[in-house]
Design a protein around this nucleic acid. Structure first.
Length: 883
RNA sequence: GGAUCCUUAGCUCAGUUGGUAGAGCGCUUCGCUUACAUCGAAGAUGUCAUAGGUUCGAGUCCUAUAGGAUCCACCA
């Protein structure tokens, strides 16, 4: 069954059908792999992409790296599992849908009500989810789709509720009041790491509460000063020392304040007046001071960002309106001493950009410092630090360990409740529930996986932080809690937990990695993964972060359509280093497309030139005949060792580069190109077969295509034609085939041939004179001879022509069987050429010769008459003119 | 304020434990030779940011400086 092979590999034609074949084979699922019972497991959980949007190149990079690891280990004989999934990304998704609703229908979520709104969210997420999954397949990701999960599906809901209840029962989850970062627009709390900071100019006002108050204070937010209960000064500040410990009454524009003066080291003497008005309810730092100094707490601003009742004319106004009113009144009363512009770092909501309002509020927390019995009386924080320090979890590159431990050490209790509709419900019910300006009081409370029986129970209206559910990802996807009864693992959890590698972006160490570690330790007593491999961000060719708003993002699917998945994968894997950002441009991707074509054409050449060509699994050493054979086989076996080592050590880029060099330079340019005369197809079949295996994790499609194409050609009627490269055994280097002597000898030949090539070009080019037309083209040699005959002494010119012929003979050197004979031949060639070079040079120095020479340059089958500046003429035309 | 990373060819970046400076793209010249023009051959280009130190030997290790990027903390 022989068919024509196209000149170039056409990815779009084959990729979908190849992916189908993989998927149908069932080998993405480790249960279908034919493995010995004691085969080791190798598991990666895919960091679930947010369902807010389709995938970008950053995701592609993640998929490329993980699929490389997965395919490599699958071929190495591990019980290899890669679990797919998506993340519901609560706040982000809710925001996207809200914006969409407003834009398309002019509706707010409140207009729809919770139930209808959530329906809209699900409608939205189903479409993006579908897009994400199809993009993932396009990348060639060999994920086990039978185990696909979503952070908000039924199984995960069950796991999350169980986790919450368990932690509550251990006293790790508690409800408490404290200052939270409140977004008045999203009406939700934000974690510290969900804040963004905006540098901006703000006015700093210096004033006194009233004219009898002894100390002036400075603030950028006068409206919050309605809730001041103290003034803090630096203990070393002599100006205020005499007031410390005293309590003053003040009348701040109609509001009665009781101000205690105390000292605190945190206060900067040189900022403003050196005295800080303390507003415990509306500043993180002040809250801390209030706790230490047992200050009263007075709330001024409510959840909508308005001034609460009880503040006279200011009540009901927005914070900004109140600020303006207060400043105006301070001016009127002559209390305002100074008004200056300063640079201020404003915290804003990372989703909507609204200024954050720090507010005290009742929230659910995970206690990170509480000693936990099941963790050997250590806290989550201590245990999470221990596993990193004892290297039960290794960070790659190592330096990120420090980022993790530093952050862990300073970790505060984690607020896990969010005031949004979309997300995991909190498994808590109350009997009576009053809501009044952020303070909630309730009577009876019930915490359990299943709703309580009886009437009058109302479920907690809040939802859980996304990271609470994604923090459980490694074990919730492996069947926890059903697979974890009485502290014993069973099923998937037993087979695949802990996982081997978590591959993710370094920016997510604190948000996600740390939470996974804590939650896994609590739930299973195990680390969630043994290694954390961190990749950098993918930037555009100017080094800017790709983002939708900037419009500089490259859509991976566009690139795949243009250049093929293999090229996209290679460009993401080669030329980048662990933990560092990388730039990507179309040029880079297209150069890898060319590489894929190269690989394809080695195969194409073999099949066209040798109808019986086949890939060889085992090489009979008697088939290694020529020096070139020994050389390429030796090089291959060194390559196998190096690539395997590199991949084992996460040096993907290096491994890819070595493969590329071998395939392009050694195999194509030297082995295939130089030994055309008597090709050893057996050796080529062996080398190509092994190269395909080594390259498969990098470029799965083209390698699989070549592999199956070859099998189908040679074995159209046997089962072999359905064999997949994907599950072939990873090559093992054979030390006996490494032949250093052969490599050295071959290198000598390479050097000699290169020298001849150099000689050829060294005297080929001379200003204004003929030259060129080397090569086999008889026409060109004829041309030189004719030009020479017309104008000069025949002999000298003939020399040039002859030399042209000779050089081609050198390049045809094919068989390096008799090394000494071959070397002698090459040496003679070099000598001849050198003599010729001297002769020619002499000729070219001859003024008479130069003056009378036709000033032509032969290039690209076209001849340019330089002297007359004439336009390019064809060779034929010139010959005609010369008669 | 604390920390990390980067600075190597015109551009984008490799360079694993210290041992003769690398790749791709681009550029110059030549070549369509039945595997490949998405190709082949040849060529040019570097005080490895700066200054010290350790060493027989430093792009690589140490110290300081400059510039760039990022993360964390945070100013009332």
């Amino acid at each position: 069954m022989k068919k024509e092979i196209p000149k170039t590999y056409e990815p779009n034609k084959y990729e979908d059908e190849i992916y189908d074949a993989w998927e149908k084979s069932g080998f993405f699922n480790p249960d279908n792999l034919k493995l010995p019972k004691n085969a080791k497991s190798y598991t990666i959980v895919l960091p679930p992409p947010n369902i807010t949007d389709k995938l970008h190149l950053g995701h592609s990079s993640m998929l490329a790296i993980e699929d490389l690891l997965i395919r490599f280990h699958r071929m190495k004989g591990y019980r290899t599992l890669w679990i797919p999934g998506t993340d519901h990304a609560a706040i982000a998704t809710q925001n996207v849908v809200e914006k969409k609703l407003l834009k398309e229908k002019g509706l707010k979520r409140q207009d729809l009500g919770k139930e209808k709104f959530l329906k809209e969210v699900w409608k939205f997420l189903k479409t993006t989810q579908a897009t994400i999954l199809s993009q993932t397949r396009k990348m060639g990701a060999s994920l086990d789709w039978s185990r696909e999960a979503f952070t908000l599906d039924e199984a995960r809901k069950k796991a999350v509720a169980k986790m919450f209840v368990d932690m509550y029962k251990e006293g790790v989850i508690y409800r408490g009041e404290r200052i939270v970062n409140w977004c008045p627009r999203c009406k939700s709390t934000l974690a510290d790491d969900e804040l963004e900071y905006q540098e901006q100019k703000t006015k700093l006002y210096t004033f006194k509460y009233d004219k009898n108050f002894p100390i002036s204070i400075a603030t950028t937010r006068p409206e919050t000063k309605l809730g001041d209960t103290a003034v803090a000064v630096n203990p070393k500040d002599k100006r205020y020392a005499k007031f410390v410990g005293e309590i003053f009454e003040a009348d701040f524009l109609g509001t009665q304040l009781l101000i205690k003066v105390f000292s605190d080291r945190e206060v900067d003497k040189d900022f403003g007046t050196g005295a800080l008005g303390v507003t415990p309810a509306h500043s993180m730092a002040d809250w801390k001071m209030a706790e230490e100094n047992k200050l009263n707490i007075m709330k001024v601003i409510d959840e909508d960002g308005n001034i609460r009742s009880g503040f006279g004319k200011f009540s009901g106004k927005t914070a900004l309106e109140a600020r303006e009113m207060i400043v105006a009144e301070l001016k009127n009363r002559n209390l305002l001493e100074k008004e200056e512009e300063i640079n201020n770092n404003l915290s804003v909501c990372y989703r909507c950009g609204t200024a954050i309002e720090p507010l005290p509020s009742k929230q659910w927390f995970v206690a990170v410092d509480k000693k936990i019995k099941r963790l050997g009386n250590k806290s989550l924080k201590e245990k999470a630090l221990e596993v990193a320090r004892k290297k039960k979890i290794k960070f790659i590159p190592f330096r990120f360990t420090k980022r993790y431990t530093d952050w862990m050490e300073n970790l505060h209790d984690w607020c896990i409740s969010r005031q949004i509709w979309f997300g995991h419900e909190i498994p808590v019910w109350y009997k009576t529930r009053n809501v009044e300006c952020g303070t909630r009081s309730e009577g009876e409370i019930y915490v359990g996986v299943n709703p309580p029986k009886g009437k009058g129970w109302v479920q907690d209206q809040d939802t859980l932080d996304t990271w609470f559910s994604s923090g459980m990802w490694t074990f919730s996807t492996l069947g926890w809690p059903d697979n974890f009864k009485k502290n014993k693992k069973s099923g998937d959890l037993k087979k695949f937990h802990p996982t081997q590698v978590l591959e993710t972006g370094y920016e997510i160490i604190t948000l996600w990695v740390s939470r996974m570690i804590m939650m896994s330790l609590f739930a299973t007593g195990e680390v969630p993964f043994e290694n954390v491999y961190l990749h950098g961000m993918v930037l555009d060719k100017f080094g800017k972060k790709m983002s939708k708003s900037k419009g500089n993002g490259i859509n991976p699917v566009d690139m795949i359509n243009l250049f093929g998945t293999d090229a996209v994968r290679l460009s993401l894997l080669v030329g980048s280093t662990t933990g560092n950002d990388m730039r990507l441009s179309e040029d880079k991707i297209s150069s890898f497309r060319n590489f894929v074509t190269k690989l394809w054409n080695i195969y194409r050449y073999a099949v066209t030139a040798c109808p019986d060509f086949k890939l060889v699994d085992k090489l009979d050493r008697r088939n290694i005949k020529t020096l070139a054979d020994r050389w390429i086989v030796s090089r291959l076996n060194i390559l196998i060792k190096e690539v395997t080592d590199d991949l084992d050590s996460y040096r993907f880029s290096l491994a890819g580069e070595k493969l590329q060099n071998f395939i392009w330079n050694d195999l194509a340019d030297w082995y295939v190109e130089t030994s055309k005369v008597e090709r050893n197809w057996n050796v080529l079949g062996y080398v190509l077969g092994y190269v395909l295996k080594l390259s498969h994790p990098f470029a799965p499609f083209v390698t699989e295509k070549i592999y199956t194409d070859s099998n189908q050609r040679m074995n159209p009627n046997s089962r072999i034609k359905n064999k997949l490269l994907m599950v072939e055994k990873w090559p093992v280097a054979d030390k006996k085939l490494v032949d250093k002597k052969a490599e050295k000898e071959f290198e000598t030949l390479q050097e000699m041939i290169t020298k001849i090539r150099n000689l050829r070009s060294s005297y080929r080019i001379a200003p204004g004179v003929v030259i060129s037309a080397y090569g086999k083209s008889v026409k060109n040699i004829e041309l030189i001879e004719r030009l020479a005959r017309i104008k000069f002494d025949g002999q000298s010119a003939k020399g040039i022509a002859v030399s042209a012929r000779k050089m081609e003979i050198v390049l045809d050197v094919a068989e390096f069987v008799d090394m000494e004979k071959e070397k002698a031949r090459l040496r003679k060639e070099i000598q001849d050429l050198e003599t010729l070079a001297i002769k020619t040079e002499g000729l070219l120095k001859n003024k008479k010769f130069l003056e009378s020479a036709p000033k032509v340059i032969v290039a690209q089958n076209k001849i340019k008459l330089v002297e007359y500046g004439e336009k390019i003429k064809t060779q034929k035309e010139l010959l005609k003119n010369l008669g």
